[in-house]
Amino acid sequence: MDPTCDISFAPGMDPAMHARVLAAPHFRRWHEGMRARFTLRHVMVRDAVAFGPTRMGFILVEADALHDGQPVPGLALLRGDSVSVLLVLKCPGYPDRTILTCEARVPIARPDLLALPAGMLDGGAFESTALRELSEEVGADLRVHERDLVALTQVWLSPGGCDEAIGLYFAELHIDEPLARRLANRQTGLASEHEHIRLHVIDLDHLPHIGMTDAKTLLSWHLYHARQ
């Protein structure tokens, strides 16, 4: 039996997107999980957005599904998993510091969200994605290796509406003060993805007091301190 026989696409969706949705790793993982853990009667793919010719982005689905014979809410935004890194900068004569990115976030209508460096997996592993994002968002002169990354936890961010799980890591790095000064207020990001990022270097103990931020930033800080 075709495992995709219970899937249809909303009228008006670009037919060229159908195969890309069905092949997307985050869609396949979600669909297999639904078939394994629910009575899945049907999935309607309402819309999908691709990020370039090879990268599938957001997929909006509506599942007709039962659990213990009862219908469950079925609307979900599928976007795949992500990773973030709490960088703990250790420099002689200074308190521990960390690096935050400041960038625009349209979903919350904020042009200046302070948060930890992070990025989407796009089919890669947590560790390799973390290193890639740090290079893009912080800079290659801050040398972070896979052996430096320590896992804190993995959590779902908004399981009532989105499939995204995030792997939280930290890395303790011994640096000199000239590098710390070069990092402060550095502008980074990929212009091809319309990323315009400014780095903030702050005392680690000041992180809970930066104002409203996202869950990964506060949770990483608390989990890191719980390990000390």
Results as ranks from 00 to 15, higher is better:
R143N: 00
L134N: 00
V106T: 14
R110D: 12
A109P: 10
R147M: 09
S135K: 06
G161C: 05
V144Y: 07
G160F: 10
C102Q: 15
A118S: 14
F126N: 08
A151S: 14
A115H: 13
L131D: 02
Y94V: 11
E103R: 11
V138H: 08
T98W: 09
S128E: 14
V106H: 14
V106E: 15
A130E: 01
V144K: 03
T129S: 07
T101N: 13
I108V: 13
V106A: 15
M120D: 07
D96F: 12
G160E: 14
G119S: 08
T153R: 03
V138A: 07
V144I: 02
F126D: 15
G160Y: 10
D148T: 00
Y94M: 14
Q154R: 15
A104Y: 14
L131K: 06
T98H: 10
A104G: 12
A104S: 15
G119F: 11
A130Y: 00
L142M: 00
V144E: 00
V150W: 05
R147K: 08
C162R: 11
R105W: 12
G139V: 05
P117I: 01
E146S: 09
L100F: 08
P159W: 06
V150A: 08
C162H: 10
L149M: 01
G161D: 02
E137Y: 02
S128F: 06
V138W: 00
Q154D: 04
P111A: 09
A125G: 13
A140K: 09
E103T: 02
V138K: 04
L121P: 02
A151C: 10
V155A: 07
